[in-house]
Design a protein around this nucleic acid. Structure first.
Lengths: 342, 342
DNA sequence: TATTTCTGCACAACCGATTGAGCATTCAAA
DNA sequence: TTTGAATGCTCAATCGGTTGTGCAGAAATA
């Protein structure tokens, strides 16, 4: 049997109340003598006492844990954000329960329910991103959550995101600046905010430079390597193929690399790529990626800070939004082209 | 206020006991009429009841959550294992609380204490790996834990590991078979089981092929990219430099790649590499890595299965050990050499 | 000496679930 | 009609903490 506060009380010859107060540093407040306090602390140590957080949480209605809902922990982008969140939360005395949704809406709902059942004080969610009714109902119950990475157009949640539009715009403008005219895009999950913004950035950049938007060059529907592979294969097999691709995630890019090398093409000589995310390994890929860098650690830290401010009641604004600026990192996956006027 | 079992009892006009029994599918056992059961189930749904797991766990002494202690979630190897564990655990109705130790012993101890306080039913630990007193004392308290990846020589815990010796032996033998004679090794954290075994495999492979062990070629002390970078720089600057390096983790390898390209050397023409782990991205690095593949998903699944068997009392053997075979995946980071007889 | 004020601690309720024991009522058997 | 067994449900204790209130005895004041 694990040692409880009662065991300490018994061996120290005081009441459980007293033990509790001493161990919670409330001896002064409740006028408990230093002598008694010392005895209790000593026996607690001797018995190797470990407070039962379940009992504590039940009474206090605080678990000091947060739920983290993430599409895919094995994706390096999410892995890095997760680490940042976990580390930051721990610093403030919170532990993190991690759930994986595999970008499945139902799983997301189930996992969130589970987390709430477990009594998490709040949630950081990187949602699948198409539906949000469940999130609204949760907020309706007074449970704090902050969204990360993906948000929703028609409803405001507290959130930490990157300016995906600006990032994409910069990426595509960069390609245009390098002389590329036929630029493809491989999109992520349709209807997610990240994807919509990145696609919008892509189109606006083209338009701004007087280029036409060719729907044949707009492809893809998932942030996965598989999607990157397939769509690149297709893009490369077109009549007037692209000279550059804007891939909307590093995982997509990896699939693209696979396809490109399979076709015996070289990067950046035959085909240029600008990617999104800029995971740690991006510089060390076959083609060191020129990529839009997302400040993953910062994002995680801000999300935690924001959530904790809500939890501690220091944040008034119920839908605070933080938009971080991404920045383009130039490496070696883009070549200069002499534009061919068609 | 969140809706409790009492609320349901009140609106349904029955006792809390009855509600509890119905919602736990014990209506038959306790002879509760279908009529009552239906009413209760209906009102539970209507009130959007979510059981309070803390209360439940307090009473049942089961939280249905497991603690996962991992050195670095952002390391793709651990990220993949973590995902596998999380997914598998969820399948069996367990959630996973993830803690990061950054390979710091004190953090590991603290995090484990915290997890136990939170009432996890069991632990899967990838320990820093040098000290194990805290793990023994935990086991002494009757808390189940299974070790992964790293284990200890002089004390037996239930564990899931890979045959690091065999993997290393195969890797180095492969290099020798390709004609390499001056083969360096960049080690991970000293005194960890993984590192000791891999180093032993390295040495035995050399010896077996009649090669001398040159201590100048044995370097490194951490599974990080930084260590890979530094040690490779040093290896390359020796008088009679290596023609091949056995890097004991993919993260080390990435640092090595950095150093090698900085020196304007090519892989595999100038220098060959065999790595360890074989993370998902390994095929897409500047040099597609020939690497010892660890079955990450399998490892995670087995660890979960094993832990759950202990938890459910189906496993008698208190120190069951599972050793999985790694296998060498050939890609393009090793070249053939004509051995120079010195 | 009587009264008030501290000092130091304990009682008991509570958080939200689970569970062994028990209590009416109904129905069948004797 | 009485006894016994089902039937259908409730009581109250429990898990391990936390907390408002209260109660002695000692010290201070009158």
């Amino acid at each position: 049997m694990r040692v409880t506060i009662k065991d300490i009380a018994a061996t120290a010859g005081v009441s459980a109340t007293t033990v509790s107060r001493i161990l919670n540093s409330q001896s002064k407040k409740y006028r408990i003598s230093e002598k008694t306090a010392n005895i209790v602390r000593k026996t607690a140590k001797e018995l190797n006492y470990r407070p039962n957080q379940m009992a504590r949480s039940l009474r206090l209605k605080r678990t000091h844990s947060i739920g983290l809902v993430v599409p895919d922990i094995a994706n390096p982008f999410f892995a890095q954000v997760t680490k940042s969140i976990q580390t930051q939360a721990y610093k403030f005395g919170y532990s993190t329960i991690v759930c994986n949704t595999d970008d499945q809406h139902q799983l997301e709902k189930d996992q969130i329910d589970l987390l709430i059942s477990k009594g998490v004080d709040g949630l950081i969610v990187m949602p699948v991103g198409i539906e949000y009714k469940h999130l609204e109902s949760i907020r309706g119950e007074g449970i704090h959550l902050v969204l990360m990475d993906r948000v929703f157009d028609d409803v405001a949640f507290p959130s930490v995101v990157v300016d995906n539009y600006a990032g994409a715009h910069e990426a595509v403008s960069y390609l245009i600046g390098k002389g590329h005219r036929r630029i493809g895009i491989i999109q992520g999950i349709a209807n997610t905010s990240t994807n919509k913004e990145r696609a919008r950035g892509y189109k606006d950049a083209l338009r701004r430079h007087g280029l036409e938007i060719d729907n044949n060059l707009i492809s893809g529907n998932d942030y996965t390597r598989e999607n990157g592979y397939i769509e690149t294969k297709l893009l490369l097999s077109q009549n007037d193929p692209v000279t550059a691709i804007f891939t909307t995630s590093d995982l997509i890019t990896i699939g693209a690399l696979e396809a490109i090398f399979e076709e015996n093409l070289n990067i950046p000589e035959d085909i240029s790529i600008v990617s999104f995310d800029d995971i740690e390994i991006a510089p060390f890929l076959v083609a060191p990626l020129t990529a839009v860098h997302q400040p993953k650690r910062l994002m995680g830290e801000m999300a935690v800070k924001m959530l904790l401010e809500y939890l501690e009641g220091n944040e008034e604004n119920p839908t605070k939004k933080i938009v971080l600026k991404p920045n383009l990192i130039e490496r070696a996956s883009v070549s200069e082209r002499i534009p061919v006027t068609s």
